[in-house]
Structures are given as C-alpha cells and as structure tokens.
Computed example of a mutant assay.
Amino acid sequence: MNDRRITAATDRVALSSLRGIVERPDYTDGSAARVTAPLAELLTEPGGARDRQLNLGADVTLIEERDGWAFVQAERDGYVGWMAVGDLGSALPAITHRVSAPATHIYPEPNMKRHELARLSINARLSVDGVEGGFARLAGGGFVPVQAISDGFADDPVEVAESLLGTAYLWGGNSRDGIDCSGLVQAALHGCGIACPGDADLQERAFEPVEQIERGDLLFWPGHVAMACGDGRMVHATAWAMRVIHEDIAQAIARIDAAGYGPFRGARRPARVAITR
C-alpha cells in the first residue's frame, strides 16, 4: 500500500516515475522549484492540516497546481504535500551555505540595526554571492550575518539537536519557531549532512536497530522519537513539556510507559547516507 506522505501523486496526476505503480488520469515529469518563503507549510490538502514544514531554500518537484496551491515533493526526504504557490519560485541559483545557528534574520542592508525582513531557521539553504561588512549577501536579495551561516555541515547531530533546547513544541514543526520530535531529529541529522525521513515511523523503518545505545542513536516509542546524548540522557521535542528538553532515558522510559504511551521500541542508529548542501 502506498504511503500518501511519500507518494508523489494527487487524485489527478502522478509523477511519471510512478507509471505502473500508481494509476492516475495523467502523469507528469514535474518541474524543479524552490521554497522562497522563510518557512512554508506542507499540508495534507489545499488549505488543510499541517503535515510538515519546509525552510527557505528547500528544493522540491512541482507536480500539480490547483487554485493557488501547489502539490510538491521535497527533494531531501521525499515528503509530499500542498503548499501555497506564492511560497515557491523557479529561480535555482547554486546553494552555497546553510543557516547553522538556531535562527537568524535577513536584513535589507548589511546593518543589524535595520528592521529585519524575515526570520530564518536552522538548515535554511542560502545562495550567497558576496560578503559585505560581516554580512552575507543573498542572491535573492537581503543580508544575513556571517556568524549564523556555514558553507559546510556540522559534525555532531547531538550538538545540533541541543542547540534547539527550549524551542516550543509544534506538531509538524520543522523550525526554531516550533518543532516536533521527528522534526528535531531530522534537523539534527540534516545539519550534519545525513539523510533522514520526516516522520518518526518513517525514521524507525529507515535505520537499523542496535542493542547498545550510543551517542546519536535514535530512541523510539509508538509515535515518538528522541536522540541519545551518550550520558544516560536524551534530547527530544515532547508535548509532555511542550518544548525541546533533556531527559534521563531510564526515567523517560518509565514515565512514558506509566502514561500508557509505551512500550519503548528500542534504539536505531542513523545510517551515514549523505545529502547534498
């Protein structure tokens, strides 16, 4: 059975690669597009509930447009959904950097005292075409502090996850403004150049189980995922605290089991499958 979250098809049209797999009235090769909004909602249907979010610079395949909405598939994790057409653009300048800080701002000039144009979150992808006065000049306009960006990936997913401690919990969230358990794990791994699906159950299926928990391993419960810190603690975005927190692993297992949300399903180790910038 096809999982709608990663099946590149609407009720009308599917990607050509799905011929013989998914039957639809029409097929398309799709077209390349890129998220131009600081943060875009990826919805279950036009105007519907949030499934996930895409940060600035995310590359997608545009499959169908309908009444101001676009059905897209995210290049990095294959997740599909509907987003506002106005949040997409067709210009695809080379991506040179990513936001490495938890969050930063775009300014109209290389001056931090000017009113910001937009707020960006960790892992937003940028096309930088120059540096002026300690600010990176973006190809699409605006300036971002050089301290907040990197032209490479981080080394430690746990450090990336911990940089988001205190971030508010948000179902389907993928940004510093709000994030959920699988969003946090994906942000941590993507920040280190490691491929990762978008939802906890997809993440559990993607990685191999391990017996001995090590730093960076993923810990799973039904509908929930956390990342082991290597010192008996884990970091996770949890609705229990409504934010990203540290928690003792043994205490979390007991708490979740007592609340009836268990059982603990074990640990899995992310495969070091690289993603592009």
Rank of each mutant, 00 (worst) to 15 (best):
V99W: 04
D129W: 13
A154C: 15
M83Q: 06
Q73L: 13
P102S: 07
H224R: 01
R125S: 03
G262C: 06
E45G: 03
G223P: 03
L54P: 07
A84L: 10
V144E: 12
A228Q: 01
G266M: 05
Q203I: 13
I275D: 05
A9G: 15
V128F: 14
D59Q: 14
L117C: 03
G152N: 10
N123H: 09
A200Q: 12
E116C: 15
T10M: 03
G20M: 15
N123F: 05
I21P: 07
H236R: 00
G178R: 05
E208P: 00
V22L: 14
I179G: 01
R268F: 04
D151G: 14
L56Y: 11
F143W: 15
V158G: 02
A258M: 06
V273C: 02
H190W: 06
L56E: 09
G48K: 05
A241F: 00
A118E: 10
H190P: 02
Y261L: 13
P46C: 06
E109G: 15
G166L: 02
L164T: 02
G232H: 08
E162F: 01
I106M: 11
G68Y: 08
G141R: 09
G198T: 05
E75A: 14
E75D: 08
R5T: 12
R277E: 11
L15V: 14
P222L: 09
R98G: 08
D217V: 01
R119D: 04
S150D: 03
F153W: 15
H97K: 11
P157D: 06
P157H: 13
A241G: 01
A274H: 13
E64W: 04
D257V: 04
D26Y: 12
D199C: 07
P38N: 04
G166W: 01
G47H: 03
G266F: 14
P46V: 03
Q53G: 07
G81I: 11
G173E: 03
V244E: 00
N55W: 12
G230K: 01
A124L: 13
L39K: 07
M242R: 06
R137G: 03
G183W: 02
W69L: 08
D151E: 10
G133L: 07
N111H: 11
A8G: 12
V210E: 01
G198W: 15
T7I: 08
A274C: 09
I249K: 00
A237S: 14
D77T: 07
R277V: 09
I253H: 00
H105C: 12
D51Y: 13
R215E: 04
V158N: 05
W221D: 03
Y261N: 06
E65I: 11
I256N: 01
C192R: 14
E45T: 10
G198A: 08
I63E: 07
L62H: 15
V72N: 07
R119C: 15
A148Y: 05
A70R: 02
I6A: 12
D177T: 13
A187L: 11
M1F: 06
I106F: 05
E162Q: 13
L43C: 15
D67M: 14
R233W: 00
A94I: 13
P209C: 06
G232F: 03
T167H: 07
D201M: 03
L189M: 09
M227G: 02
D129I: 06
W221N: 02
S17I: 08
T7D: 15
Y261Q: 09
